[in-house]
C-alpha cells in the first residue's frame, strides 16, 4: 500500500543560495524512515498548514538521516517553508519517481546542461559521477538569469576543481566578465572545449530551454536516444493516483520525472511548452 502520510523531519539549517533560494538541511527524526534515493528521485515536502510540493535531493539522507534540498520561494508552500525556523518539524514522503539512468554514462563523454534551479536534480548525480570518475569526459554548462539568481555556487565551485564548469548568464551586468546569453548561445563554445560532440546529454531546467537545446544537439548529429532530461510538474500524491502530473497516459511522478528525450516528445507534443517563469525551481 502507498502511504500518503508523511514521516517527520526537522529543519536543521539553511543557507541563502541565490535570489529567493535557500539550500535547506533537514534531518529525519527516524534515520531509517526513508529508503536510499537514486540520483534524480524526488521527495514530497509537507509544510503543515501550507501543503506539500515535490523537491529533489541535492544530498541523499546519510546514516543520521540528514539530507539537503534546494528550494526557491515560488508559491504558498515554499513561502511557508521560508517562514520556518531551524528546529521546525515538517514532513516528508519518498523517495519517488525514476532517477537518472546511470549505466548509459559509463566511460562516455557526458555534457550536463542545467538552467536555474534545474541544476538541483543533477547535484547528487554530478557528485557521484565525479567521485566515481564514471565518465570519459564530464562538462557542466550552467545558465541562469543573473549572477544574483545563480544557485548552488559552492557546489559549482567544488566541481570546478575536477571538471569544466561553464556559466552563462542572461543578464551579466557591467561589473562582470564572461559568457552572456542562454545555454543555447554557448553550445559552440562547449563543444569546442570538449574532445568531441558529447555521447550523452543530460538536461534540466525550463522546458523551453531543454527542448531547444535537445533539438539543436539532434540537429548536430547526437542520437536522440542519448539525451535525458528531468521535468517538473505539479504533484499532490507522487504515487500516480491524484492525476495532476499527467502527460497523456503517463504520470510524471511515477513514470518520470527523468525521461529519455525521444520518449518524452510523444507525451508533451500537445502540452503547452512555454515557460512563463524562465528559471525557477
Amino acid at each position: 500500500m502507498h502511504s500518503l502520510t508523511p514521516t517527520p523531519i526537522k529543519l536543521i539549517s539553511y543557507d541563502h543560495d541565490g535570489e529567493k533560494a535557500r539550500h535547506f538541511t533537514f534531518g529525519l527524526l527516524d534515520p531509517k524512515a526513508m529508503a536510499a534515493p537514486e540520483p534524480g528521485q524526488f521527495f514530497m515536502l509537507h509544510v503543515p498548514g501550507a501543503g506539500a510540493a515535490p523537491f529533489t535531493f541535492t544530498r541523499p539522507p546519510d546514516s543520521q538521516g540528514v539530507f539537503r534540498a534546494l528550494v526557491r520561494q515560488m508559491g504558498s508552500v515554499t513561502s511557508a517553508l521560508f517562514d520556518c525556523e531551524p528546529g521546525s518539524i515538517l514532513g516528508v514522503r519518498g523517495p519517488f519517481g525514476k532517477g537518472w539512468e546511470i549505466s548509459p554514462l559509463k566511460d562516455r563523454r557526458v555534457l550536463i546542461i542545467a538552467g536555474g534551479c534545474g541544476l538541483a536534480p543533477l547535484v547528487s548525480l554530478t557528485d557521484h559521477l565525479i567521485m566515481q570518475q564514471y565518465c570519459n569526459e564530464l562538462v557542466l554548462l550552467y545558465g541562469s538569469r543573473s549572477a544574483a539568481a545563480s544557485v548552488l555556487n559552492p557546489e559549482r565551485e567544488r566541481w570546478g576543481k575536477d571538471i569544466p564548469v561553464i556559466d552563462i548568464l542572461e543578464n551579466r551586468g557591467h561589473k562582470h566578465i564572461g559568457l552572456t546569453g542562454t545555454p543555447m548561445d554557448a553550445i559552440d563554445m562547449v563543444i569546442n572545449r570538449m574532445k568531441a560532440i558529447p555521447d550523452v546529454l543530460l538536461l534540466c531546467g525550463p522546458e523551453i530551454m531543454m527542448q531547444s537545446v535537445a533539438r539543436e544537439f539532434v540537429r548536430r548529429g547526437l542520437d536522440a536516444k542519448q539525451i535525458w532530461l528531468a521535468i517538473e510538474r505539479r504533484m499532490h500524491c507522487a504515487v500516480g493516483t491524484c492525476g495532476h502530473c499527467y502527460m497523456e497516459h503517463q504520470y510524471a511522478c511515477k513514470d518520470g520525472p527523468t525521461y529519455r528525450w525521444d520518449a518524452l516528445q510523444k507525451l508533451v507534443a500537445r502540452q503547452s511548452a512555454d515557460r512563463q517563469a524562465a528559471y525557477h525551481c
Binding site: 515554499t78 510538474r233 503547452s272
Partner: peptide, 17 residues
Amino acid sequence: SFQREASQHNPTLEPGQ
C-alpha cells in the same frame, strides 16, 4: 488550474488540451 504549477507554468493551459 489543475496542472498549473507554482511558477504559473501550465502544461495544459488551453481548454481544448
